[in-house]
Design a protein around this nucleic acid. Structure first.
Lengths: 191, 191
DNA sequence: CAGACATAGTTCGGAACCGCAAGTATTGTG
DNA sequence: CACAATACTTGCGGTTCCGAACTATGTCTG
């Protein structure tokens, strides 16, 4: 991540390229910096604390969610982790095979599956999370504590807003025309 | 993304789980909300403007970088886009096959490859970017313009900090012990 | 209570993605 | 000119990822 261009330079180039076009610069910078920061942070954590436990980012997030909430139904785990149900199936399988996670059937509703950490998983997270948190502190070094709070609060507002209004917005945007299917993905058996 | 738990509830659960453990809550919330927001925003954009042009997030980012900077050497494109060189090779190939991107040799240094948008690519971005930017405005709705600015500025500081000090930090963290190799990856021919 | 509908999870196709090793080509250097 | 360094590509083994199709189960309704 040692850039050829700094963020400031990039933003300047954007201005040069788009000087004439009316665009909303503050929001653009906010969104693009959210992704830059997310990528940089993820990379840092994957290549430090996670790597030594041979965990991927997603694997860690899934463990974290289950750890925090205790037993949890898979659909909610997927939601909290920000991945699809299908992805979770695979990730959970990997984590199970490493003995960190276990999968239980629901006693009354046969459709449900519940995830829970094994003792090994609990132990790992108890050990790993403080280290993880140390790196969260490291990446947040340039922020005052109050700034970190205000940053989190603004992002929280954005997420809440998207959860509340994103779907409607997407519906409005596409109007009548249905979304084109993805280039990839499962096909109907016969068409 | 219509969550089972709100962010506030999650943060409360964390406090319950970790009440005893000394941890740095502001920084944790900041980092985790950066990723929540990034995921939610990315999903919104993929399922609105990008989907209608059949572009993936990464494909769009690559086009965007090249669009902003004009001709650009591949290694810098990968860096700016936040992906590895190897991934870029594949993504660029996809974009080339759709006639959006072209690949040029460098006139004086034969090792270099340079990417540039085709006229079709330029046209697509000219059409797409304003729509993209509109959605950036949408996701930033809950922020005042000044807040968006301050958000971007804080994130910029974090990225800069990581670019400057991340590698050293990772070195310090692992001390003498070299990083374990990834579970997967190409093996040495014989060993 | 059978059939329709809804819900939860899994499977699967296609792609993206990483990190590394190895290969190819080119450039720089002693 | 040998040899190191650099830039990109290729390929491997694996994970992640989405979303539609599919399976199994539960619920509602006539």
């Amino acid at each position: 991540m040692s850039g050829h261009h700094t963020i400031a330079e990039t933003e300047k180039a954007v201005q040069a390229k788009l000087g004439a076009v009316p665009l909303h610069r503050e929001q653009m910078a906010a969104v693009s910096n959210i992704h830059r920061a997310a990528t940089a942070i993820r990379q840092h954590l994957e290549n430090s604390v996670l790597r030594t436990s041979d965990l991927t980012w997603t694997g860690f997030v899934v463990l974290w969610v289950v750890w925090i909430w205790g037993e949890m139904e898979t659909r909610y785990v997927a939601e909290e982790a920000g991945i699809s149900k299908g992805t979770l199936t695979g990730v959970a399988k990997t984590l199970q095979s490493r003995g960190l996670l276990e999968r239980l059937g629901h006693p009354t509703d046969g459709r449900l599956a519940v995830l829970r950490l094994t003792p090994e998983g609990e132990e790992l997270m108890g050990d790993l999370f403080p280290k993880f948190n140390e790196e969260e502190v490291f990446v947040s070094n340039p922020l005052e504590s109050s700034e970190a709070q205000s940053l989190a609060e603004m992002l929280r507002r954005m997420v809440t807003h998207l959860e509340a209004n994103g779907e409607q917005r997407r519906l409005d945007l596409r109007g009548d025309t249905p979304l084109p299917p993805r280039r990839s993905g499962r096909r109907a058996k016969h068409g």
